[in-house]
Design a protein around this nucleic acid. Sequence first.
RNA 1: GGCGGCGUACCCAAGUGGCAAGGGAGAGGUCUGCAAAACCUCCAUUCAGCGGUUCAAGUCCGCUCGCCGCCUCCA
Length: 493
Amino acid sequence: MLEKKEKEDGLKIYNTLTGRKEEFAPVQPGHVGMYVCGVTVYDVCHIGHARSAIVFDVTRRYLRHKGYDVKFVKNFTDIDDKIINKANREGIPWTDVVKKYTDKYYEDMHRLGVEDADVEPRATGHIKEIIEIVKGLVDKGYAYVVDGDVYFDVENYKDYGKLSKRNPDDMMAGARVEVDERKRNPMDFALWKASKPGEPSWKSPWGPGRPGWHIECSAMSLKHLGGRFDIHAGGADLIFPHHENERAQSEAYTGVSPFVKYWMHNGFITVDKEKMSKSLGNFFTIEEILDKFDPGAVRLFLLQTHYKNPIEFSNEPLREAELALGRFYETVERVHEFVEKTPDEPGKEPPKGLEEAADGLMKKFTEAMDDDFNTAMAIGHVFELVKEINRFLDSKPRGPRAKDILRRAEAALREAGGILNLFEKTPLDWQRALLKVRHIGIEEPEIERLIAGRQEARKAKDFSRADEIRKSLEEKGIILEDKKDETVWRVKV
RNA sequence: GGCGGCGUACCCAAGUGGCAAGGGAGAGGUCUGCAAAACCUCCAUUCAGCGGUUCAAGUCCGCUCGCCGCCUCCA
């Protein structure tokens, strides 16, 4: 019993490989090795990429919060057909394509609050390791060479199809791809591709060429995390063929099985119920979304649904997320006001309820997150506490004890928010952010000036003048709220 | 054709055996020079449909209907 307690910490992860939620137990106690498939840098990122990045950013932060020493690896695919094609089309070196979209990736992700990985390896930086593995696979009889190409022989790897839950025979029957005559089996895939003249290439025992798509991840995960590590993650569309193939290569090469303990895959973003994708052209880029919405709202929108479920994309729920965030900051502002303005003299005993809710938040939050990173439920708990805080403030509490409880409540909100990398702004900064993102053509000092003018008018009981100022601001999307001794501005949502 | 997933209020969305979280919209109310905003309260005896297991089912099992994904590059 005691032993069990030490081993398990309550975290459960849905494992694509087994199709079940499993108790999380890392390969090495206290440490977590996590590999996330990043992007191929041939174009700008869309909201689907953002989802994957944000979901696993939170996974990482939560594991860290639980006290694990997390080594987080996220790769860039910086050589493949799409990159070469793009370079040809634009008449620029392929390395320029890589540079351009890698920079853009960082810009987008930083804006979304996605933390950089501990290691961010690139395929082209691991050619030596890749060749090493391909050579090993050929030597062991798992791969064969044809005209400078090297293929993985799926027939020799008995576990093929286990991750994506399909058997090779069925796949052959339904294969829609034109079969390459030189392959022994239609499912065989390239480990190394011979390059055509003019294409980027590296020297290899099989002639000049470049790595196949899947092999880079095998090489990089092996190098940076070892032959057996904890979590491998990516979008659900990577399950087949990418992760299936990667698994086959890695395990065939090292002989270690399973090389990954937990496979995690996030669901898609859909538009009109259809998967958002480059080929359908129904995608929204991160840049265009951030031009209209605050990054926090985007994060909240994405985390309000469990990571495995699909999310239907549209402006409406994003707007709702923004509204919800505003409500959060509004409450924080009320707390600050109360803490600043309430005298320290002893007051009546504050009502129960909030104290319990405040001190209990992290337990509930943790329980939700322990259940396969259920951010949707965890966020629900956060908003329950927000509601409780408001109820408490409405009861007109007094005294240092009430202040203390509110401080603890805010601290709990901040702690939960820190794990999600949400709710981190001050209420004023939130308004300033909205001012920008809504493209309201008026600067803060100007608003303050108008407010001051209106205060004058109010003092002089010139209410029609005061109302006029308010109205003119409202037309621009700024709402004025009269409080006891001041007037504050808000962006209309 | 093979494999997998989903269907919870007007909308979005948690909930995987024990009285249906949360957000938006809507309705009442508090506050206020008037407002607005904010806040509070209310808002699913019911979980696509039909059967079954159980003391107990949205939750497990079976079938039906509807939607989606993967099997080709894809987060």
